Computed example of a mutant assay.
Amino acid sequence: MQDPRGVPACFSSAEKIAGDPAAVTRPGQSVFISTYRTKMADQCRFITITWFKNLLLHGLSVAVDGPPGLPESHCTCKVELKPWYFWRKHGCKSFTVDEKAVDVFWDLRAAKFNGETEPSSDYYVAVVCDEEVALLLGDLKKDAYRKTKCRPALIDPCLVSRKEHIFGKKKFCTKVKFHEKGGLHEISIECKSKTDPEMEIRIDGHLVIFVKHLQWKFRGNESIHVNKGRLEVYWDVHDWLFSTGLRHALFIFKPNLPLTSSSRSMSSPSLSLDSTPLSSQTGSSGSAEGLNNGGGPSKFCLFLYAWKVE
């Protein structure tokens, strides 16, 4: 996995999003990137699913790790959902990984996006190799297995990380699952621009982090509790305060225990502020291990790139 500040190499409509998050410079372009760990072509590999949307284009990119030892080598399939190309909303594309055929099937004809970049229902995206469905997204699972004529994989894929690029002026909101089988949690981040800037982070409407004197605490972390689960939150808002133009801040949410949809009651966060760079604070966030469904520590991380637009 890459450094927490990096972004997997995937495609947008007119530009390639490289390791530098500053490559995303177009306000209004939404990018959601989910990385899964699974077994494919006789190797444990990462599959990266990218949904992107701007004023002209809505699309999907599927990237699979290349041969071991070549981390920068990706095999990529790109699907553009232009409104005047209805037939492109379902189909199949193929490429090879280590000389093995990989097929990507999708059906987004009836997909409900509800104004979001990712669909919420009535769709499937399936990645197939060696007559197994290595990764299956969406709720039309029966349709996917019937179309691919392949069996489910013996090993369930694990969601390792999710990266989102969101734009705003003072307030930034998103919804996310901290666990694949859990419910959606609403995260809101608000930076109050005063003589002495302050920052609020809320989860499901509950104030869980409040930072005073943000100009002195522009980097830090806190541990908050959601029912019986603990969530580590890291932030770096240096560019918000001290740079000009289109500026981004980085927020990392790392659950130590899987959080469920019933995790609504918030306890008082334990304060642990410091100015240590995020890259050193989160050295284990890029672990190749997946979610531990048995109740042990989770290796999933959510990375939010919040872009401030004047």
Rank of each mutant, 00 (worst) to 15 (best):
T35F: 02
A9K: 11
V7C: 09
K82L: 14
M199K: 09
T174H: 05
D274H: 01
L60N: 12
D3G: 14
H185V: 15
H213V: 05
P71C: 04
S270G: 12
V64R: 01
G183T: 08
N293Y: 10
P68K: 07
V104H: 02
A306L: 05
G182V: 00
D20N: 04
G295T: 08
D139Q: 02
C75H: 15
L259V: 10
V79C: 01
A126M: 02
I209W: 12
K217D: 13
S94Y: 03
W307C: 04
H238A: 06
T35V: 02
A23C: 14
P157Q: 07
P68E: 14
Q29T: 15
F300D: 08
A41Q: 00
N114S: 08
H248G: 08
P83Y: 10
S223L: 13
L250E: 06
D107E: 06
L250D: 03
D139Y: 05
S280E: 15
W307G: 03
C75L: 13
T282N: 05
S284F: 10
R151A: 09
G168M: 01
K100R: 14
A144R: 10
K228W: 10
D65T: 04
R45G: 06
F178Y: 06
K149G: 03
S263E: 03
W240S: 00
Q29Y: 05
E180H: 04
Y234T: 10
T35M: 03
S34N: 07
R146W: 11
I187R: 06
W51K: 02
T48A: 00
D236G: 03
E164Q: 15
K16T: 14
S270R: 13
E200G: 09
K254D: 12
S268R: 07
S13C: 08
P83M: 07
K142T: 13
K16Y: 08
E190H: 04
K82R: 13
D103R: 03
D103M: 10
L250F: 09
